[in-house]
Design a binder for these strands. Sequence first.
RNA 1: CGGGGCGUGGCGCAGCCUGGUAGCGCACCUGCUUUGGGAGCAGGGUGUCGGAGGUUCAAAUCCUCUCGCCCCGACCA
Length: 575
Amino acid sequence: MRYSKYFIPTHKEAPSDAEVISHQLMIRAGMIRKLTSGVYTYLPLCLRSIRKVEDIIREEMNRAGAIEILMPAVQPAELWQESGRWEHYGRELLRFKDRHDREACFGPTHEEVITDLIRKEIHSYKQMPINLYQIQTKFRDEIRPRFGIMRGREFIMKDAYSFDVDEEGANLSYEAMYEAYTRIFDRCGLKFRAVEADTGAIGGSYSHEFMVLAETGEDQIINCTGCDYAANLERAEVKPSETLPESDVQELNPIIEVATPGIKTVEEVADFLSVLPSQLIKSLIFVVDGEEIAVLIRGDHELNEAKLKSLLGAQTVELAFERVVEEITGAPVGFAGPVGLNIRIVADHALKGMRDFVTGGNRKDLHLRNVNMKRDFEVDLFGDLRVITSQDSCPRCGRKIEFGRGIEVGHIFKLGTKYSQALKAVFLNHQGKETPIIMGCYGIGVGRTVAAAIEQNHDKDGIIFPIPIAPFEVIILPLQMHDTGVVETAEKIYTELLDIKVDTLLDDRDERAGVKFNDADLLGIPIRVTVGVKGIKGGQVEIKLRSETESFFVPINNAASSINEKVEALNDSPK
RNA sequence: CGGGGCGUGGCGCAGCCUGGUAGCGCACCUGCUUUGGGAGCAGGGUGUCGGAGGUUCAAAUCCUCUCGCCCCGACCA
């Protein structure tokens, strides 16, 4: 491609609303332009990167035995009502009506559509396993789109769905996808980690997220330094600590009421009473599928709502409004406690060993000291409810854990029969018995993968693309466009590279050297070939890798083959 | 949805408080010079100051409404 005939509108400055580096660089490098909140045009450079990611995805999905299809973006409401998600998916689902006033939505995901297809076409165990995938534009009306195409509302996604006759087959399908995803992100040249994850709105029983490691990632992840356990923070299990014997009940101290005027937060109360936050118990009132429930957490711990949700098998979990808290506890927010409450109480494991602790007094400006379980209140259900901390050890092997951040680029789920049951996707098994199909689903954010790659690979001058997903592999910079020797040499190498199928951009603009160098750095094309009068005199051109500071010279005559060697070397060396 | 902030040329911003001819840098166009790390000089074009209404002799500026965008929050009492 010739730069002068192409469309790469670069900018020196990033717009002020671009927060993260990948967003800034994608705007500056002329990759994306915003149309409206969370909705972007992919300019040619970005599209080339996206296509390269898509090609890698296709190759690996096909290798894993999946089959590409393309489903409609617009979906009828009836299907979503049938699965129950018309109600549950919430405001993220973009809904509208057609001219006949029929309700529809723009697909944010395709479990309903694919399951509908499968229930109509698959009736026998002989037709499975099967895995169908597509690469398509989705729309999710995010609460707060941000970071450019990292969290857009409209985005390109690869989604795959597997259908199996039994659990064992479903596990094989899942593992095949796990391997395919590992290969995909490896081939994209990304540093990533697969972590155990919460299943969220898609539902299902078990899942892994593929996280590109980056400081600016929206997700917090933990991993064990001793074994291969890694998880999303919202999922990470906490090993229950040793519980103390419960035999010495008689030695418990009597409850003391303490006036705590205006003192509400854990820090304030602990400070006021000169105790550690770990001696306090936070009592949080939640509305769980319409039922009010008290949740008890140690003062220095943090509740993990996802865990609460799964412990109770709930659809919705919401912190109660102030008014509700006042009705239930008889006190303003900040003074809730378990003593005397007549609603269900669930508590984190960490409370088991505690005695003589501090809680709210269910009265304005009152806390209680020396509160104890069993004597003063009963816990209906214990569970793992808190967020893991740096003091905790690995739930599998007990060794030290590390915290980090990541960008979720892929997510694989075991769905079980959630959708096949709701939509009655059944088949006849060997015994001729009607059985629900076991499903799995597997997503990759294609645009986000490109953004994540930039987030992970850049410097002060711009992007440093991993070569497998770079829009071009090589950029040629003829520095003096008025010098026929320079131009001819650049053209010669350009033609030779195109002949051997190296993706090459020739910067044939009549610009000053500095402009070309800076743009080349900004665009992040992995290999730069500089053709200048100086080099030509010695019969040489200069080659520099974007990822390195040193350059070297090669003879013009075999420049193309030297460059090709570099291209292949870079392609073969995953990060 | 709650809180905060911002809308002035393509981009980045000043001007607004204290009303009085709309400005700067980059970008863009023309010419000359320059040409291995975002050139210099000269000339030029570019705005319904987000929109509507109001106050006023006069509004980018003050007031009201509205739209859009961004940030934080929407769980930890």
